[in-house]
Design a protein around this nucleic acid. Structure first.
Lengths: 340, 340
DNA sequence: CTGAAAGCGCTTACAG
DNA sequence: CTGAAAGCGCTTACAG
């Protein structure tokens, strides 16, 4: 395991330069090629990564910054990235920031220091500090899950998904709906999904029906709430909502929130879906196995990871990439929504 | 970002050696120390990792080999490892093997090639190839979740946990029990949990009651089954079991399996816990929020990760570590077990 | 305490 | 196509 390029050169009876050229696909005569190949195979020689990187000033490593590790979306995206990167002979390095924006910035600089070739950034929001860091390091960055005009982005089609969920539940006859969203600082989850949904409602309303009163007169009562990303937060929020409003359906901005809502409903003796229908966003595995199974939007996280990996590699290799890549999704109708 | 040690030396009016010594805590006079410190701060100098590693022939990186990323146990263990490593100024590198044993072996060699300082191995089973690889690389390895006499190990107390679950469900009056386990090739999950449970049953039996017939005469009917780790597999297995055996309780070797069982029960119109009680192992977040909440054994995965990190760092630094570290657990009684 | 020098294992112009 | 040489940015005996 400890052979150096000098050993190989000596054993093959050529110079180090030639071996290096052979390794990196430079021009080498067929004859020497064979000689070196034999020695490399026999010795199991592998070049020292550090020496390579020190000279070449770059690595075959893609750094991925993630806000958390214990999330279905993150882990599946990571698996997709890892798989694709591996097939392209790149390595994935993960930096977990535990939802700490300061650590996100640090991670970006730290990756730069380590001469990482490219960075995939899974972030809930992009601040000026992010922008500054990305500018500073002059390394390709791909944003996943959010969109920003100054950064190559890969997103899920949150707006359309929100619209589809809205159109679907309306088509099932629901008119009294609580939309349980998250902070608008997360544009994808907090704004896009909600606005998509809101637009679906608008499109369903009779013409000229805009104000809350007009909506109510038309039989619609749609209210918007905000909670955190954690199931426990959602449970508490849902409990409070249900004390003051009796919707026939709750649209939740994530599957986790939906799970919290379902739990809160059970605690109050509310049966799903006959008393209360529920929908989510995400398509986590667990949503299929609970009872009743959750109607939700399924995002192709693993596939998104693969595409993200392809894009960042293209960026690293100075090939063109669309400013924004939009992934598809599917609406999965299961048991948690009743007809009204 | 591009200063080298030579620049710093020049700016501080000392030699490169002295700067290096300062950086690595060697003996430097207070005066020079101050001079160098000032320059380092002013320039924001950070040493080039590759050059360091190339010379020093070691890194501050700990490699972690994981069979999968999308598991509660894995992700929480990783978070604990990462957190602790970070605080000790080590970095964590993750290699996901997608449950492919061959890739586990490759990952070990690859880490060695990259001069990683130590390896934390989360593996379901240890083969001869693992042993050979670990021998070959001569880098400290810590095994997490499984125990092996030739490798420093950190385990959860699966046997005692199995015993406790057994004693608990017996104390609740259950006598007709299906134990739904996994392959015995996974010693921790497949053997230890089951044998702990089996011993609890033995200890509860009247003296001199050994054979199946004697057990049945004493009112006990305990049957053992095996399934896969996936919810979907467990669902199918449970469905088949319930067609031929009507236990009052099913003890599942993992929370995932329990989730599959619960789903199968619902599909058959079996109510939990009144018709059928269920228990799991793991303590995944989701088990608390489903209805009814799952009675299970909770393992401190995050804490285990932290301890694992401490241990591997001690190993790397040639300090002593116990051959086996055993983590504690807690039995969480919730709603999925009825009294009989 | 401090510095000059060698060397870690590669790659890359530059000649030939 | 091939080789000698310089150099990437550090660290580490070795002198002083």
């Amino acid at each position: 395991m400890n052979k150096t390029i000098a050993d190989i050169a000596q054993m093959a009876g050529v110079s180090k330069s030639t071996v290096s050229r052979f390794l990196n696909g430079g021009s080498v005569s067929l004859d020497t090629k064979r000689k070196i190949e034999k020695v490399v195979k026999a010795t199991g020689y592998v070049p020292n990564t550090f020496a390579q990187s020190l000279k070449a000033k770059r690595t075959n490593i893609i750094g991925t910054v993630v806000p958390r590790l214990d999330s279905f979306a993150t882990s599946h995206t990571l698996m997709g990235i890892d798989e694709e990167l591996r097939s392209q002979h790149y390595q994935m390095l993960i930096s977990n920031t535990s939802q700490d924006v300061k650590r996100e910035i640090e991670a970006i600089y730290e990756f730069a220091r380590q001469k990482i070739s490219g960075i995939i950034l899974l972030a809930a929001q992009i601040t000026d500090d992010h922008l500054t860091a990305i500018q500073d390091i002059s390394i390709p960055v791909l944003l996943v899950g959010q969109q920003h005009e100054q950064i190559h982005s890969l997103i899920h089609d949150d707006y359309r998904a929100g619209y589809d969920i809205g159109a679907y539940v309306l088509s099932q006859g629901h008119r009294e709906i609580a939309y349980v969203g998250v902070t608008e600082r997360d544009v994808a989850v907090g704004v896009q999904r909600k606005e998509g949904f809101r637009q679906a409602v608008r499109d369903a309303l009779p013409a000229g029906c805009y104000t809350d009163e007009e909506m109510r007169a038309a039989g619609y009562d749609i209210r918007y709430y905000e909670t955190g990303f954690k199931m426990s937060d959602a449970r508490i929020a849902a409990s409070a909502i249900l004390d003051q409003f009796k919707p026939s359906l709750m649209v939740c901005a994530t599957d986790n929130i939906a799970l919290g809502v379902i739990n809160a409903a059970y605690s109050k003796g509310i049966t799903i879906p006959s008393d209360l229908s529920v929908t989510g966003f995400g398509g986590y595995d667990i949503t299929e196995v609970i009872h009743p199974a959750l109607t939700t939007v399924q995002y192709p996280y693993m596939e998104a990871g693969r595409v993200a990996a392809q894009n960042i590699v293209r960026l690293v290799e100075h090939k063109t990439v669309e400013p924004v890549t939009v992934m598809d999704y599917s609406l999965i109708e299961r048991e948690s929504v009743d007809k009204r």
